[in-house]
């Protein structure tokens, strides 16, 4: 019996055959993107991993493969401090972001479809559409010693000396929360699918008041969305760079800022590569924890 012998080409036929000629067509269509991906993704990442096992000094790569960089990393208290700072910062920021995003997500989810809802939705994700340097600059203006907030508070006589809100962790946290809220809101709303108003009505008819309804019905149903949003925000926070760099004013030391400094200022490429791998390992660990959690509650 002859199978797959037709040699005419048509859309219908493309779909269920694996003839060599069609293979070639698919390849031709895929090559441009494959090249881009190879040059600016697969190649660089492979190189990065490689470099984390080599030594470099002032931009010159030398030495043989070894675990020296990793040994240096784990034996240096400074780096342990960095990891601690980064984890602590990301954790705090994620929690605050969740607190800020949940009401917005719930409000948007409950709103009936209307042009108002669309406007609010666009407003919610608008920070995503505005360059992070612009928003960070905005925060510097708002929170600086002579910034809008301090000027207002001093002018009103509520303070006698300005609050220190930038060039420290507070500033970085504020900036990060604002950056992450859109992501969190989108994740939460994606996870709100199971939230049906009739469930709340049922709870109310059974005698649950507003607060009990929230904690017994709404919150448990939205746990998957919360988990997803927290995962996303945590990994984004730990790898964010612009906000800590500018709002930290060089006084907040995190993994991401250290990678940049090592690579661009000190030209310690190997150490920067090692730090990057550490960040990726933290990512992997977070993802693993999330998948464990999702399996249990999802």
């Amino acid at each position: 019996m002859k199978i797959l012998t037709a040699n005419s080409s048509s859309l219908g036929q493309l779909k269920n055959t694996t003839k060599p000629r069609l293979w070639l067509w698919a390849l031709v269509l895929l090559v441009p993107l494959l090249v881009i991906n190879l040059v600016s993704f697969v190649g660089p990442i492979t190189h990065l991993v490689q470099l984390s096992f080599l030594q470099s000094r002032a931009g010159v790569i030398s030495g043989t493969y070894s675990l020296e960089n990793y040994a240096n990393f784990f034996s240096d208290g400074y780096y342990w401090g960095l990891i601690g700072n980064s984890l602590m910062m990301s954790f705090t920021v994620t929690l605050i972001t969740l607190g800020c995003s949940y009401p917005i997500a719930l409000f948007l989810y409950r709103m009936s479809a209307s042009s108002w809802r669309n406007v609010l939705f666009v407003l919610t994700i608008s920070p995503l559409l505005v360059s992070s340097v612009v928003r960070t600059y905005g925060w510097m203006v708002l929170l600086g010693d002579q910034g809008v907030l301090n000027s207002a508070l001093l002018g009103a006589g509520l303070l006698d000396h300005p609050l220190r809100l930038v060039n420290n962790r507070i500033g970085v946290a504020i900036g990060l929360v604002e950056t992450l809220v859109p992501y969190m809101v989108l994740s939460l709303m994606a996870g709100f699918g199971r939230l049906d108003l009739s469930l709340e009505e049922a709870a109310a008819s059974l005698g649950a008041n507003r607060i009990k309804r929230f904690f017994r019905i709404i919150l448990p149903l939205t746990v998957p969305g919360i988990a997803l949003g927290c995962l996303l925000c945590f990994v984004l926070a730990i790898s964010s760079f612009i906000t800590p760099k500018l709002l930290g004013g060089g006084r907040v030391f995190l993994l991401a800022t250290e990678i940049y400094d090592q690579a661009v200022i000190q030209l310690e490429w190997s150490m920067a590569a090692t730090l990057s791998i550490i960040v990726l390992l933290i990512f992997a660990l977070t993802l693993f924890l999330y998948s464990q959690f999702a399996r249990r509650f999802g």
Partner: peptide, 22 residues
């Protein structure tokens, strides 16, 4: 002609259209 035949022939009138693209 949206699916290629594995074997056999399709004729319309006297024309064999088995391998004609759709």
């Amino acid at each position: 002609g949206l699916l290629p035949i594995s074997a056999g022939r399709i004729l319309i009138g006297d024309n064999d259209i088995s391998h004609l693209p759709p």
